[in-house]
């Protein structure tokens, strides 16, 4: 037996191992992504495959996204009113609600909801197929599981999330309208008029949509990769599902920061 290593060496070597591991996983994820894009032809030549995944990822997430959007919009309006009324600027409520939603809350909250509702399901499904050798069975049947199982799920997610984010924002604005106009009694013309005057379709709306598309790629990739990379055991799949939600949330928030810096710095030109 050698003498016990000093604690600092142990910590450093753990850190080193963890770093190398993370880099290796990143490399594997990149190769996985490239392979998936290459194998996407099958998915696109058979839209039925993608349609099924849009149903799983998009349609089944509709209720939670619509409800959350409505409530977020109503809360925004109530809270916004508290602040705006002090400056006598309650007509700007429409602007406040719309800008918060289309720029930030729509893409981000819809992305987080999507990751926990649809992303985790994707990971669990693929992980379970791996555990029960369904993916291996496909491979032996000369069917590429990346083309047949992974790519349709990925593209289904990529298509679903931007639509869900748009629906989230729309319902949120409607919620803001309900509270602001119907409940509090702000002038309906001022609500929509100020909103339209302040929200630019390219600078605000389009940038929000771009954000949601970026999140869609990130979350879908994380979800299918974690599923495909899961350890083929029950614990492995549940750990992978958790990782999907955590990693997606971090990725969404970090990407949101980066995108916001690039999109909304220094105003529109």
């Amino acid at each position: 037996m050698s003498a016990p290593e000093p604690i600092i060496a142990r910590v450093l070597s753990r850190l080193g191992a963890a770093t190398l591991d993370a880099i290796a996983r990143l490399g594997f994820a990149t190769r996985f992504f490239i392979a998936m894009v290459k194998q996407s032809g099958t998915a696109f030549s058979r839209p039925q495959l993608i349609a099924r995944e849009i149903y799983q990822a998009g349609v089944l997430s509709l209720i939670i996204v619509l409800m959350s959007g409505l409530f977020v919009g109503m809360v925004l309006a109530l809270q916004g009113y508290e602040t705006l009324v002090r400056f006598g600027a309650t007509e700007s409520m429409g602007v406040l609600v719309a800008l918060s939603l289309v720029r930030e809350l729509g893409p981000v909250v819809a992305g987080l909801l999507f990751a926990s509702r649809a992303g985790s399901a994707m990971t669990a499904e693929i992980g379970l197929m791996k555990t029960t050798e369904q993916l291996a069975a496909m491979e032996v049947m000369a069917v590429d599981p990346i083309a047949r199982v992974v790519a349709p799920r990925f593209w289904g997610g990529v298509i679903s999330l931007p639509l869900l984010a748009a629906l989230f924002s729309t319902l949120g604005i409607y919620g803001g309208y309900l509270v602001g106009v119907r409940l509090i009694g702000i002038d309906v013309g001022a609500f929509w008029g100020q909103m339209q005057a302040a929200v630019d379709w390219r600078y605000d709306v389009l940038n929000g949509v771009i954000k949601s598309i970026v999140f869609a790629f990130a979350v879908s990739l994380i979800a299918v990769f974690e599923g495909y990379d899961a350890k083929p055991t029950a614990e492995g799949v549940s750990a992978a599902t958790t990782r999907t939600v955590v990693t997606s949330a971090l990725a969404i928030l970090a990407l949101d920061f980066v995108l916001t810096v690039f999109m909304f710095r220094g105003g529109p030109h």
């Binding site: 197929m129 029960t132 050798e133 291996a136 049947m141």
Partner: peptide, 29 residues
């Protein structure tokens, strides 16, 4: 692989398809 058939340990049936679709799967593909 197309001239090969393999029966996996626990069957590895596709859980999201019916029995019919499971057997039709290789034919469709």
């Amino acid at each position: 692989r197309r001239r090969l058939g393999m029966l996996f340990q626990f069957g590895a049936l596709f859980t999201d398809m019916t029995v019919f679709d499971n057997i039709a799967f290789p034919m469709h593909e």
